[in-house]
Simulated scan of single mutants.
Amino acid sequence: MPTTRARRGGEVGAAGSAYAALDLLATLVAVIDDDGRIQYANHALEDAIGLSRRTLAGVPLAEWITQPELLHNALAGARGHEYAVIRYDTHLKRLMRAPLPVHLVLASTEAADRRIVEMLPLEQQARLEREERLLEQAQANKELIRNLAHEIKNPLGGIRGAAQLLQMELADREDLTEYTAVIVHEADRLQSLVDRLLAPHRRAPVMGDVNIHEVCERVRTIILAEFPRGLRVVRDYDTSIPEFRGDRELLIQAVLNLAHNAAHALKDRIAAGDACITLRTRVQRQVTFGKRRFRLALELHVIDNGPGVPEDIKDRIFYPLVSGREGGSGLGLTLAQTFVQQHQGLIECDSRPGHTDFKILIPLP
């Protein structure tokens, strides 16, 4: 087990005031001197190792790394100004637990004798990369949708207007006005699709106090009214979840879109009478969104026992116009993701045959 050496309280307190902002980070951070001894450990690193920063102060960080020679080499390179930033994968030792695989980043600071060591758990790094991809995808979708919708909208109005004029000219030819009626009808359908594509980007959220269980109950009522037989909607609520600021109607629509998708995926089980959707709420602690750490977050699951998301679209389910069912618009999940991201959150999906779980994560105050 790595050794520890206590430092004087005054030194720890002085370091604490200088580096207090590091406690807001979700990543594990240590400030070390040129000899590699820990001068400061943030809360995340304390939690990971299982010791307080006061106990860790003055201890060589290399004692807590499974490949200490790599850290020694990195420090030598930093002291010699060979590198500004050094990265590599290693393992962080922990008390009474297995070593944690981390991506270690060693960087210089403005102080010549201090280095910052940031350790990002590899699982967390993968999650951050996935979140960044979702955010980038959402932004790209937004631009694509806006441009595509405007490109469609202008000629669509001309097509509909021309069809109406032609319909008036052919008023005495019922066999031909059927065709113009089809053109007008399809133009209206495309116009409705364009309006739905643009809707979430036109309306600013109307913020108010939201009780997530009122949102869930509203969705449950709507789904059971639409599917009165063969489908159970199970409540699994954590009633201690506090109210938070949000747009109630947008959140209802987001959860309803997920529940609707689940219900349509369950059509065979509904016919058999054993379809089930579960609405589950939980609180998750110390959650990271992007690179910000939040003390609490709402975790809302919409779980179904259907066949699962088709493999060929698993990586694209939040793209616009991608649908796993015949006749689907491919907008439900895209809009749901947009509405949740307007609350600084995101939607994740875990799907396999017999169990599909769409999880909404939203920071709580």
Rank of each mutant, 00 (worst) to 15 (best):
V322L: 01
A44Q: 00
L250C: 14
D236V: 12
I145N: 08
N257M: 07
R269T: 01
A74S: 15
R94H: 03
R127D: 00
K153G: 02
L51S: 09
L361E: 08
A41Q: 06
L361V: 11
Q39I: 13
G328M: 10
D304Q: 07
A84S: 14
I241S: 11
S108K: 14
F339Q: 10
G308E: 07
F318D: 01
S351K: 06
H185C: 12
G273K: 07
L134I: 03
A163V: 01
D357T: 07
H72S: 15
A20G: 02
A263W: 09
H213F: 06
A181H: 15
A6E: 15
A111H: 06
R218A: 15
E249P: 11
L75P: 00
I362V: 11
M1Q: 14
A272G: 06
A78S: 14
R97H: 14
G77S: 15
F318M: 01
R280Y: 12
R235E: 10
A26K: 08
A275D: 03
F294I: 02
S240G: 03
A263L: 08
R316H: 06
E143R: 04
R94V: 07
T334V: 07
G9Q: 13
A76H: 13
P228Y: 02
P363F: 07
A62Q: 00
G345F: 05
L25I: 04
I65G: 06
A263D: 08
A225C: 09
L335V: 15
C349L: 13
F244M: 09
A171F: 13
L70F: 09
A98K: 14
P99W: 14
V12L: 06
A14F: 09
L25E: 01
A41G: 01
H201Q: 07
Q139L: 03
V233W: 04
L51F: 13
R280S: 13
S329V: 04
